[in-house]
Design a binder for these strands. Structure first.
Length: 648
RNA sequence: GUCCUUGUAGCUCAGUGGAUUAGAGCGCUUCCCUGCGAAGGAAGAGGUCGUACGUUCGAAUCGUACCAGGGACACCA
């Protein structure tokens, strides 16, 4: 599917216009179907009057008109106006809508590694994690639709403090306490059977935080204080046991995080989010990635050992040294190895980033984790797995992480550069996005009082957040109550609504999560998109088997403005995909999907009922148009990860 | 303090150099189903695009300053 705009752009390129060409609508329809200010832009570059440039381009175009363009005119101060041959366009578009999307082929080649989700495996997913997963998954879909080869990985931080904390809570927050040994059956039994495992962990993680990190505003009493001291001591023991690797507690921790990961993957699958590979932090450590990386960083002189000063005894990345502030001296350097020899998260991340580019001599071992609901296998790194070719070795790496981690990401890429991997550093992208906060209304529902109009940050520590599964369940309930369809897949439609809600915002807009807004089922929502698709399916079903076939229609002599609008929108899908894949944002796709659905609604409401149309040619053409819309919308929904339901 | 980011209609947001009318949804005021799905469509009210100066033939869009939100600057991740 190449629309008139794309064909015009291609011809302009042939004529030596290498700048990005943009198109827009002229103020009056008689001035053309679309226009371009390219000659005005070229004025500065070529130093000629825009009207002269425009006229020159027009003459060039006229000698061999772009496909689907029947005329080109010039209007002051130098706009090029294009008149579309709608009949030719309609004929091709309807036929091609059934084929694959054929976007402009990518200039760069090689595999793209996208990492997203990355939820700490110690509690249930909340709406903030949903934003990450849905954003990452949609970018993956857009890149694949644009012809890129993509591998998706999900990083599991199973050796971090958050897991240690929840293990501490599991073993020692409530009786029966862990008393040593290999038998954890009594411990596991503490998780109630009537509450999801990840929800239980959510609760005990928040509960243990009140001892490990007490709120200064609410000091602990004597009894609580002694309990807190006990838990701190146990936490230290657990930390050592997990670091040691092959201990009973380490195995318990791994079993616990595995259970949580299974819960996360189930939740993600409910939102049509899938992966290729799970990368476990414990495997990064055991595979010796860091030792290898450490050696190279030292050799390259990218890091230095501090003999004195604030960071005495640490290996650091120099980022500006010590600076004086009113609060005293402070170091801007980034510590990779602490004075006790332990490495920081950023250090692991450097090694991991090198693995993604295939720049380490060592590799993980792998095993099959599961087959996902999309039918694709999911692999995982595993210490006792098998060597396996084909993972990593990417040409480009995209890490989907929220904006608060911009600085550590910068350090990682800087270190790649210092190691001499200049191209890899350039091809590393932090896909940064703003966080999700809770509106006063959402917070109130979770039992937190906030001033009207204020919002509140989610906090795993405090157990404050909207859980993803709760949101999906709730949305499905709202949807079920609105539908007359007995066979409605409310859960699938809930996923549509939630995904679209998250994707509508640009990445640097903070989402103030609000139940009322999120659960809207009319207007600019995912439900509206699916509705338009279901409506088209319904018309075609009523018209009978095989109606709307792409090969049996005659384009009428004249088309209505609604028909033209619909055609134009259908032809724009490749541009929307390309724009999303280039900018790594989802708004080009969501705004496109909405205008496509709106164009269909406009067409539907301003066209006499097709099924009662007496002229068989017109009836057949319009059914073909509906059929083409169904195909284009299906592709659009698929890129958004939204299920195309034929009835809602 | 330094750096990043945001400020567009009552609310929530798109738009980030182009054309005398800056778009959408929600909310508000009116219409439109014995004619294909009203989770829809049509019409209307509602905006000095934070403020000021500048660059440009042209600025919501670029630059500078200021004001106001948010975030990052740990031997956390």
């Amino acid at each position: 599917m190449i629309g008139p705009e794309a064909s015009a752009a291609a011809r302009l390129k042939d004529l030596g216009v290498h700048e990005t060409v943009e198109f827009n609508s002229p103020p009056r329809p008689e001035m053309g179907d679309f226009s371009s200010p390219i000659a005005l832009k070229l004025r500065k570059i070529r130093g000629q009057a825009p009207l002269v440039i425009a006229e020159e381009i027009r003459a060039g175009l006229e000698s061999s008109l772009p496909r689907y363009i029947r005329d080109v005119t010039v209007t002051p101060p130098g706009f090029l106006n294009f008149f579309v041959d709608h009949r030719a366009f309609a004929a091709d578009l309807i036929r091609e809508s059934y084929g694959p999307v054929t976007p402009i082929p990518p200039e760069d080649s090689g595999k793209v590694e996208v990492e997203h989700t990355n939820v700490n495996p110690n509690k249930a997913m909340h709406v903030g994690h949903v934003r990450n997963a849905v954003l990452g998954d949609t970018i993956v879909r857009a890149l694949r639709a644009a012809g890129r080869q993509v591998e998706v990985c999900n990083y599991i931080d199973d050796t971090g403090i958050q897991v240690v904390d929840v293990v501490t809570a599991f073993l020692y927050l409530e009786a029966p306490y862990y008393v040593g040994g290999e038998d954890f059956s009594e411990i596991w039994a503490k998780a109630p059977s009537d509450r999801p495992f990840d929800y239980y962990c959510w609760d005990i993680y928040a509960a243990v935080q009140s001892y490990l990190k007490p709120d200064p505003a609410a000091p602990l009493d004597a009894a609580e204080q002694s309990r807190a001291t006990m838990l701190q001591e146990r936490k230290a023991e657990i930390t050592h046991a997990i670091e040691a690797g092959d201990t009973a507690i380490a195995h318990f921790a791994k079993a616990l995080s595995s259970r949580i990961v299974r819960a996360h993957l189930r939740t993600a699958a409910r939102l049509n989010v899938f992966y290729n590979l799970l990368n476990w932090e414990s495997d990064i450590l055991r595979a010796g990635f860091w030792d290898h990386t450490f050696q190279r960083l030292k050799e390259a002189g990218a890091i230095q050992f501090e003999e004195s000063g604030l960071n005495k005894g640490c290996w650091v990345v120099p980022m500006g040294g010590t600076e004086e502030t009113p609060e005293g001296a402070r170091s801007r350097d980034k510590i990779l190895v602490r004075s006790n020899g332990a490495i920081t998260y950023t250090a692991k991340d450097i090694a991991y980033q090198l693995w993604k580019f295939g720049k380490l001599d060592t590799d993980f071992r792998y095993e099959l984790w599961d087959t996902q609901a999309n039918g694709e296998p999911l692999w995982t790194t595993a210490w006792d797995g098998e060597p396996r070719e084909g993972f990593g070795r990417a040409a480009r790496v995209i890490n989907v992480i929220d904006v608060r981690q911009s600085e550590p990401q910068t350090v990682v890429y800087k270190c790649l550069d210092s190691l001499g991997f200049k191209e890899e550093a350039r091809n590393s992208t932090h896909l940064s996005y703003e966080v999700v906060t809770l509106s006063a209304q959402a917070a109130a529902e979770l039992g937190v009082d906030v001033e009207e109009g204020q919002d509140v940050s989610m906090s795993g520590r405090k157990g404050l957040g909207v859980k993803a599964d709760d949101l999906i369940d709730r949305m499905a309930g709202v949807i079920r109550s609105r539908s007359a369809e007995a066979t409605l897949d409310a859960e699938a439609l809930a996923a549509a609504a939630i995904r679209y809600y998250m994707l509508r915002f640009s990445t640097n807009t903070r989402i103030r999560f609000d139940f009322e807004v999120a659960s809207q089922t009319n207007g600019d929502t995912g439900v509206y998109l699916v509705y338009s698709f279901a409506r088209a399916c319904s018309i075609l079903a009523k018209a009978g088997e095989g109606s709307g076939r792409p090969d049996e229609f005659v384009v009428p002599r004249s088309l209505s403005s609604e028909e033209k609008d619909l055609l134009r929108e259908m032809g724009r899908l490749p541009q929307a995909i390309q724009s999303a894949a280039e900018s790594l944002t989802t708004t080009p796709l969501t705004t496109y999907a909405f205008s496509l659905a709106s164009a269909f609604a406009g067409f539907y409401d301003h066209t006499p009922p097709i099924l009662r149309e007496p002229d068989p040619d017109i009836r057949q053409f319009r059914l073909s148009l509906v059929g083409a819309f169904r195909e284009v919308m299906k592709k659009t929904l698929s890129i958004l990860g939204i299920p195309a339901l034929e009835r809602i």
